[in-house]
Design a protein around this nucleic acid. Sequence first.
DNA 1: CATAAAACAGACCGGTTGTCCTGTTTTGTC
DNA 2: GACAAAACAGGACAACCGGTCTGTTTTATG
Lengths: 217, 217
Amino acid sequence: MPKKRINDPEGMRRRVLDVAEGSFQARGYHASSLGDLMAAAGVTGGALHHHFPTKKALALAVIEERVAAAVQATWIDPVLAAPSAREGVRAVFEAVAAELEQQGYVRGCPLNNLAHELSLADDEFRVALARIFAGWRQAIADKMRADQMDGGSTDPDRFAALAIAAYSGAMSMAKTSQDAGVLRECLRGLEGLQPSPPPVGTIGKRRRRVLRRREVR
Amino acid sequence: MPKKRINDPEGMRRRVLDVAEGSFQARGYHASSLGDLMAAAGVTGGALHHHFPTKKALALAVIEERVAAAVQATWIDPVLAAPSAREGVRAVFEAVAAELEQQGYVRGCPLNNLAHELSLADDEFRVALARIFAGWRQAIADKMRADQMDGGSTDPDRFAALAIAAYSGAMSMAKTSQDAGVLRECLRGLEGLQPSPPPVGTIGKRRRRVLRRREVR
DNA sequence: CATAAAACAGACCGGTTGTCCTGTTTTGTC
DNA sequence: GACAAAACAGGACAACCGGTCTGTTTTATG
């Protein structure tokens, strides 16, 4: 009696992307062989080739579907949900730092990892990665523009660029030293450019505003 | 008559390192084959193997001799020669941005490029790269501590970490977008954290100070 | 149920990679 | 000049990689 087989194209595609995403982040694109991915995902060559004709196509799918989603989930969504762009950036920095310290190792930013390895290798890779960077920047800048507070003392585009650059660079150092501490140091340095006096606590944003009004009058 | 041969071990070693440094930066470590390097350097397999037994040994030499020297030449030396750490950082940012815009393409920071690809691959690589990052940071922090001006308003270690992170991240974005403009944007954002009020232009810092004094009085 | 397309299995192949190995030549040393 | 070590030449090789190919099974469609 021949063993049954159930076709699950979406599930198989997802499994391959899961494994590829993890391997690309941990070992990089070139150091990840399709053989290893096939073994890790429990997928045969025929199935892999059916969903992703070439290794490049697989990487492109990882970038556009997984890396972009990761940036959205860990950065854009939290920032948009925060009371302000500055608050959002601070929250993400601390959340990532806490997560890294808890898990004990640093694998780096998925976007930056692939960007460094693939930007110069292939223009199609480069454009796909640049699009994610651009969306990331614009989301932070738009959020800052939407904040009616923080009266235009700092340019939103510059702030967004600096926040992302500081995060990317800090992650690079954290990955190399295997220590997330530099993330917190960069955040502290970043907080130094706030136009308002140094914050005392996190809560009470409304309260502070009331106090300030009383002081003025 | 057999052709003559002149042994030049140092020159040959230097040529190999030259080619390897360039290829590692342009294509990365894994994408650079020893065959290509041999052909580009005009070196036979025997000679290459004599000076560098393995590819890893070659990369380690590139890191410790070339990448470290590049960081020293483009960052540490200029910063130490500048009137202040802040001035030095600003000068390096602008110098690199100008150089990139002139040459028309962006290959990224040699240190960060290799750090991303090799930090997780091999611990020996990671430690060598981390040492360069640490020296970079300490040089800027020490310089800032040596400045008697800038009265302790910002922590030197934080400033150094932020400056390097912003530069590394900005180079990452510049490499991905093939546009050095983000370097200048990050520099502008970085200048916002200066204890002095926000600058209006780039030139005439002394002139503005005079004008401001007149306005005040 | 017929049938075509999609989904999957598994072997195969040409090319490349890094390394090793055996010689030959040059160079330093006594 | 004898001689050992360093410097270099060049081929060989096993492992591996990515892609292709053929064949089989499942699924959708009518």
